[in-house]
Amino acid sequence: MTALLEVDDLTVGFTRDGTRTAAVRGVSLRVEAGERVGIVGESGSGKSVTAQAVMRLLPATATVGGSIRFAGQDVLAYDADRLAAWRGADIAMVFQDPMSSLNPLLRVGTQLTEGLRRHRGLSKADARAEAVRLLKLVGIADPDRRLDDYPHAFSGGMRQRVCIAIAAACTPKLIIADEPTTALDVTVQAQVLDLLDELTERYATATILVSHDLGVVSSFCDRILVMYAGQVVEAGPTDDIVADPAHPYTRALLDSIPRLDGELPRRLPAIPGSPPFGDVPTGSCAFADRCAHAQPVCRSEAPRLATAGPRTQAACHFPLAGARTPEVVR
């Protein structure tokens, strides 16, 4: 059966001043209708580039390889008109910075009704009425009046609510939320995730949640892909990944999350070193220099994504096993 989204062996490289940098290296993923998939990793791991590649939002300097299929159709073959009709109606994106996602020169109502009129064919009056309903749905008080405000009159959390309303306006089959809580405080983060949960549940929308926070992803998603240096290093159902991670990088990410059991340490564990930027040698494990379990083979041979558990895969020569994770704060 055809999945809603099928990405196979996706590669993305950027060329600048004659130098090509690989940002995504052989990523494959599937998203079924109504499914929630999380993509997690540190900054520079290729999460956002993968999401932007799916949406065809990469700049002209990007070179994309592999295949992206949506409902069986080749997204990389879409022309400009097909892309304009597809975005907003079938797929939508919530960007990570609510302070710059909205056009500061246009009223919120104009930005919210644009998609309603284009994709749903609503009249100006009907589109405004629907926009009022959507703002009320996402928790904006006095929505009829606030439609006429400019973005600067909204807080960061309220702007993100507006962005989610815009994304959900035409009930797309898939919403990609790229770090939707990054610039928000903890309380507002929880409210935004609850809102995203409510809307995707209400409209049976599939969701890809991109985040650096494995705790956030594990509380929302059915399945998780862990990315490092442009590759998927572990994948599987959320419960399996959180309870018994196979890749040392996933283990390290989980160790950096506060636990509910026992006393909190003075300092949370941190992953030593920094993630690689730019091209990574193909003949070694990209995580080897930061990994406490690395062996000589890790620096001479790149591991491939392979079965690590009953329902999980990991790209590691020496996958961990049996060290179940205490409950994390979600």
Results as ranks from 00 to 15, higher is better:
Leu4His: 13
Leu10Gly: 00
Thr15Glu: 08
Thr21Ser: 15
Gly26Gln: 05
Ser28Phe: 01
Leu29Asp: 00
Gly34Thr: 02
Glu35Thr: 12
Glu35Gln: 15
Ile39Lys: 09
Ser45His: 09
Thr50Arg: 05
Val54Arg: 00
Ala60Pro: 00
Thr63Cys: 03
Val64Ala: 06
Ser67Trp: 00
Phe70Glu: 03
Gln73Glu: 15
Ala89Gly: 11
Gln96Asn: 09
Ser100Arg: 13
Thr110Gln: 14
Gly115Leu: 06
Arg118Ala: 14
His119Asn: 01
Ala131Asn: 06
Ala131Gln: 09
Val132Gln: 07
Leu135Lys: 00
Leu147Cys: 08
Asp148Phe: 10
Pro151Leu: 07
Ala153Ser: 12
Ala167Cys: 05
Ala177Tyr: 01
Leu184Ala: 13
Thr187Gln: 04
Val192Ile: 15
Asp197Phe: 07
Glu198Arg: 15
Thr200Glu: 05
Ala206Gly: 15
Thr207Glu: 07
Val216Ser: 02
Ser218Tyr: 04
Ser219Thr: 13
Asp222Met: 04
Tyr228Val: 06
Tyr228Met: 04
Tyr228Leu: 10
Ala229Gln: 07
Gly236Tyr: 10
Thr238Arg: 11
Ile241Gly: 05
Pro245Val: 12
Ala246Glu: 01
Leu253Ile: 09
Leu253Ser: 09
Leu253Val: 04
Ile257His: 13
Leu260Ala: 07
Leu260Asp: 06
Asp261Thr: 14
Gly262Ile: 09
Glu263Trp: 09
Pro265Met: 11
Arg267Leu: 14
Ala270Pro: 01
Gly278His: 09
Asp279Ala: 15
Gly283Lys: 09
Ala286Met: 08
Ala286Tyr: 10
Phe287Val: 01
Arg290His: 11
Gln295Arg: 15
Gln295Ala: 14
Pro296Ser: 10
Arg299Phe: 14
Ala308Tyr: 10
Leu320Pro: 01
Pro326Cys: 06
